[in-house]
Amino acid sequence: MAENLKEKTGELDISSSGADGYVSLSARRQSSGKLGDAVFKGVAYGFAFSVILLMALLFIVLVKESWLSIKAFGFSFVYSSIWDPVAQEFGALPSIYGTIVSSIIAIVIAVPISLGIAIFLTEMAPKRLKGPIGTAIELLASIPSIIYGMWGLFVFAPFLSEYVEPFLIDYLGFIPLFTGAPLGIGMLPAGFILAIMIIPFISSVTRDIFQMVPSILKESGYGVGATKWEVIRKIVFPYARSGVIGAVILGLGRALGETMAVTFLIGNAQEIKLSLLDPATSISATLANEFTEAVEELYLSSLVELGLILFLITFVVLALAKLLIARFSYKGGKL
């Protein structure tokens, strides 16, 4: 079939372009190009489409494996806070709560710091520092999360419980968020380590976006006498807004699904406590802790359903992000 096509088009080209050898050669090339195009496009399409299939398969497998739990608990799985492997009763609320709160803490800490780093690197740092620091931060973005988790457990948690948390309890203890014992392990430490983990990621992407702001825009800002901060605030930020939101959302995505860093530090308690210093749990930490031990079908199935819920959460977050980006994206020029 393909051979046929090739011959036909080849002949057609030759007949239309006469006996000139050069032209016929180029025509032949063009015909192989058409076939090549079809094949290349087909293969590319196949791989692109396989992503959709993969996603579908992932959902089907997750739903199938969690069907037992969906049938047993129905919607109460989402709002029940009982997690009792002995009585075979499972509710996901503490895990969902922990996943969301620790990620929010991470974003609240990481976004201002990342913006600070990006501003520092693009607008302020002396030339000699720009390159090395920028590269170093990019490199840090690739350090595996298990190393953040391990460092958090061995180094940072003792530091927190010794120096930081007693201070928080003494001076901010009147706020219910900062009560309890200085364990060095809990919601706040987990959120903090997540923040440190996503800072390099968000700041290196943000820096790249800031660098794409055309210097002619910035120069015209300076030209009318704006200060550096005014240029950043009124020209750089609006121009880069949609890109920065995208970077933050991707950072949030990493924080929501992160397993290793959180598991080491969150404290792994199936409870919902107001205090951020108390141990909590997250969906991924529950999975990492208990997936190996779940022998009973219902237990295992409930754990898989937790994974499914995490999927749905990221789905909603990303859908929201897409809406936001569409609404806020810079309309004044081509990005």
């Binding site: 997690w83 492997p85 002995v86 199936q270 031990e293």
Partner: peptide, 9 residues
């Protein structure tokens, strides 16, 4: 694994 009445994990 049990549903612990008290403590940290």
């Amino acid at each position: 694994a049990v549903n612990w009445p008290a403590g940290v994990g």
